[in-house]
């Protein structure tokens, strides 16, 4: 139930980010100045935290999506769905910890 809520909320959040992300990337077609100026906004620390949250959402949605697929297509999937959820959370942590160390040290590393 809560994994479903999480999957739904992260799906919508990622979708709206994707709309904006295609628009900001499209500025490369306007001019290098326009693109570099707007993308510069992604590099400040507040946005850095936002990016961390977004990546956390994507990684959860991705692993939980694979769990949904396993439950639907693997014959023992429904039986082990609960264990699979723990697997999703464990993989999420294993992915996020190195990501956060690297990304946050880049964002806050002062360049």
């Amino acid at each position: 139930m809560w994994s479903w809520v999480g999957h739904r909320v992260t799906g919508v959040v990622i979708f709206f980010f994707l709309l904006v992300h295609v628009l900001d990337t499209s500025l490369v077609r306007v001019s290098p100045e326009a693109y570099t100026a707007v993308i510069g906004a992604y590099k400040n620390p507040i946005m850095g935290l936002g990016e961390a949250g977004l990546v956390a959402a994507i990684v959860f949605h991705a692993f939980n999506g694979l769990r949904i697929i396993a439950v639907d297509f693997w014959k023992n999937g429904p039986k082990y769905q609960r264990q699979l959820l723990w697997g999703v959370l464990a993989l999420w942590a294993v992915t996020m910890i190195p990501f956060l160390i690297r990304h946050l040290s880049i964002v806050f590393g002062g360049h």
Partner: peptide
């Protein structure tokens, strides 16, 4: 885009 090299700092037009 985020992990290799200088990560997000490297992203610009080039």
């Amino acid at each position: 885009n985020l992990m290799v090299g200088e990560g997000i700092h490297a992203i610009d037009f080039g």
